[in-house]
Computed example of a mutant assay.
Amino acid sequence: MITIVIPTIGRASLARAIPDGVPVIVVEDTERKGPAAARNRGWRQARTPWVVFLDDDVVPGEGWLEALIRDLADLPEDVGGSQGRIEVPLPSGRRPTDAERNTAGLARAEWITADMAYRRSALEKVGGFDERFPRAYREDADLALRVREAGFRLVRGERVTRHPVRNDGFWASVRFQRGNADDALMRRVHGPGWRSRIGAGGLLPRHAATTVLGLGALALALAGTRRGALAAAAGWAALSARFAWERIVPGPGTPGEVARMTVTSVVIPPAACLHRLRGELEVRR
């Protein structure tokens, strides 16, 4: 009835993600084509009515398989997918870091393939994942929207999967801005209202204003327009400080975290805009 598909890039956490008592297809993304391509390879090998996608850094909860079977049993034919409930264990005794809060957001995200079951017939009808999405970002939302557009409903199950927080380093939040390129593809495929349809927000307009003010301050200074340069620089500093403060206040307030938020809050706006511009150029090709 069920096949598990797990794409992996060789993380040591993979062993904890593999549940017992059910066929599992592990697809190693050796060519770095991305999780969308790896999952397509996996589900096309499956011969069961349901295919369950797990990430290689999750831990299925106790009794997960039994709960999964209950989630999928007797679902109407118009239900094309069932999402598991994601729990993110956060540290006790202190406020979470920016990285921990970002991971905790997965618990509220819709239709993410950290734990997402699809009817094989629904995957066949829409052609599976769109392999133009090269990262573990938006490829699952794109699939969910296309499955719903094909006439299927998506529901939430009761099974629970834990998603531990990884330490991805000082610049992780800057690297994550690469996803803005994928947002350009989402807009091209699903139209300007795609964010509301998956319950996603975004700070790109504010990042664009910050970047324009920063570049404007530099250009005006080079042109010798001191008053204009100072005004633009003040606007840039205000928006940058606001962004950093919004990320610092909910956190633990340690010197390392404050330094990381301060530095990356300056780098993120232009990085986000640059990646979005790159994505817009790519989709127009």
Rank of each mutant, 00 (worst) to 15 (best):
247 R>T: 13
256 G>A: 11
153 R>Y: 01
150 A>M: 03
84 G>R: 00
74 D>F: 03
204 L>N: 06
90 L>P: 01
138 R>Q: 15
192 P>M: 02
184 A>H: 09
148 R>G: 08
50 W>F: 04
82 S>A: 12
126 V>Q: 04
199 G>Y: 05
186 M>D: 07
281 L>Q: 13
72 L>Y: 00
69 I>K: 15
256 G>E: 12
31 E>V: 09
24 V>F: 01
138 R>C: 15
251 G>F: 01
242 R>D: 13
24 V>P: 02
170 F>N: 06
284 R>M: 13
131 E>N: 02
49 P>W: 01
220 L>H: 02
145 L>C: 06
151 G>N: 02
198 I>K: 13
6 I>R: 01
177 Q>M: 13
280 E>D: 12
135 R>P: 04
190 H>I: 05
39 R>A: 09
207 H>K: 10
41 R>Q: 12
156 R>D: 14
250 P>Y: 05
107 A>G: 12
103 T>K: 11
14 L>F: 00
84 G>C: 00
218 L>R: 10
267 V>E: 00
66 E>Q: 12
43 W>L: 04
210 T>H: 10
129 F>W: 12
110 E>S: 11
39 R>G: 07
282 E>A: 15
175 R>L: 13
266 V>Q: 10
187 R>E: 15
54 L>C: 03
146 R>M: 14
95 R>F: 06
152 F>N: 03
